[in-house]
Design a protein around this nucleic acid. Structure first.
Lengths: 198, 198, 198, 198
DNA sequence: AATGAATGAGGCTTCATTCAT
DNA sequence: TATGAATGAAGCCTCATTCAT
């Protein structure tokens, strides 16, 4: 979240164009020439709008993360029953897949790499806040006997987190299943398991 | 699985050295110079052992996939109850994480990219065979009323597949949890869900 | 001295802004964006005032050189004793350092480069006229036995010329020594040398 | 003086080739393509020998400065009469012009720029040591009544320093005047001045 | 006069690969 | 087998300049 960027329509449009390419081919595999081509300008012209390729990515990721964290914080603050809170978190996550598919894909695929860049240390911070929120819900749920008592909150958190976000690899919101339907399917599985008597 | 090259100890050692780097930094981000440095030779010298950087990766991935498919086929052939078969598949997968962490990591991270390379079309074929095996188990389980009747086999397969393999991001077999313990935790969640009465 | 453009206050101010940057960072290292930033406009806007970056430099250098040559010519024409003429030339040079520090700095630092540009051939011409004036004074002085008979006029000229102008690297007219004081110090050294009986 | 570089004949030859270009056209105006062309290789091939263009310059300047400082230190340590010490310093400087013309030229021309680069802070340190040596000689000479009592050591140092080094702009050791002849001419002027009775 | 977007040439650097020794 | 030097394509970025608004 480096500096407050002056927005501009052109700028935003370029971020979106780049985002698609980053998601499809990977951030590092996407050249500025690709981006320029997709935008209909020479690659050098991109530098009229952005300091660097990294800046484009930063803009994409930081704006997504800010929105997601805002949503998560609002859900966590509502103080509903753990099962409801968990459901809301899952729903919010799947819904964000529709609007932010590109950002999420990049985040999933380039996470390891990006964490080595000083500019993106905020990713780690955001991750930590997210973890705190999920783990709190899981702990509360166990305490309130809404979840199994033998649940390991950390392992379960990782499992939930990854299994939600990894769906970005195949989930298409315009496909045969909507985000809300996916959430329903997912939650049924998560809450009740595969067993028919669940 | 391009050309089964005459094996050699040095060759295998080099593949392992490269594998670690591929896993840590990504295949594309790993330069042949990195590999040479890690192996204690100049980058050009690697070309006495391998045709290309791709060949090193090919060797790593194809040998892993062959082993995994053999294991999966053996499990599927045994014709045990679906629940048992599923358990065995999950267990085999988690166990392979210990020995083949690097290969699996690369496969997870570079999948999209590799599928665009003609040389690695066998990845897609292997994936298809794996999918057939898992989906068969899920269908059989539903039919045998071992799994919920409303289960969508395709979505469930993707969910299981991803949630298993994605653990490679954080699972360390030498950590506080063994592969078998992880399997147990995972299967409990999968079969019974979060609910305490599951 | 390409085209004497209609002057304008804004134009002159821009030349001065650019001059400071040229002196501080070098002509080539100063981008039109630097200049625009310092002037509070976008770089493209400078092109409403100047054809090119070269034009800005041209304006700076040619106006300085015209003034210097006028002064030198007036001194040479006065036909005073060689020692007096030399003193006047040195004094005029040091005094010009105060008002034209930027121009002189650029001239010193970029001389080699600028001489390769067709537009700036006038620099070489001006240099030649200056040399004629100084060498004449030195020759006259030797002839009039005001200077040592074994003096090599060409080498001495270069030595004087460079040692005067190179002070632009460190001389600050607003520092502890004025231009006139520096002249005094310099002339004492030049005329009498380091020796105490000089 | 970044790191001890493994020398190699090719490497040294490339430094010399680059040095000539840096001196002729300036460091920044010399492109790696120029250097490659002059060396008969592609520009990228230079990176087999050097990390960067800066490294080439570093190698040139640091090796020159080490040698010069060694010579200066040896002269200063000898504890001869100030006039003799000064003569030796001047002679050593002019002699170094023959062998290190390129390095000296770059140092003179790019000094301001290089001082802004973190890598070249050692330039400033070397300059300070040189200044200490010269100023000590001047002070000692005044005290020993070998130099005029009204001499300002700092201003005189600058004057001597600049007037010596600036000759690199025109002095050609293979021209009509040798380094030693130039020294003689220079010292006569410096010690006795222009006046015939000096 | 000024802006904002773009051009096009060229800068430094990286890297898989080749090859004579 | 290994080295050391080189290739050639490509990557990110800079910058003077142009031009429609």
């Amino acid at each position: 979240m480096t500096g407050t960027k002056r927005p501009s329509e052109r700028r935003d449009a370029l971020v979106q164009i780049a985002a698609e390419l980053f998601a499809e081919q990977g951030y590092r595999a996407t050249t500025v020439r690709h981006i320029g081509d997709a935008a209909g300008v020479l690659s050098g012209s991109l530098y009229h709008h952005f300091d660097s390729k990294e800046t484009i990515l930063d803009e994409l990721l930081s704006s997504y993360l800010e929105e997601l964290l805002d949503t998560y914080r609002a859900i966590a603050k509502k103080d509903t029953a753990p099962k409801t809170t968990l459901r809301d978190l899952v729903l919010a996550s799947f819904r964000s897949l529709s609007e932010h598919r590109a950002a999420i894909t990049v985040l999933q695929n380039e996470r390891n790499y990006l964490r080595t860049l000083p500019r993106f240390t905020y990713l780690t911070k955001a991750e930590e806040e997210v973890r705190r929120i999920w783990i709190t819900v899981l702990r509360d749920g166990v305490e309130a006997r809404e979840f199994r008592p033998d649940l390991d909150p950390l392992v379960t958190y990782r499992f939930l987190r990854d299994s939600v976000w990894v769906t970005v690899r195949w989930f298409r919101p315009d496909g045969r299943m909507s985000a809300d339907q996916l959430t329903e399917h997912y939650l049924t599985l998560i809450f009740n398991g595969l067993a028919p008597n669940g």
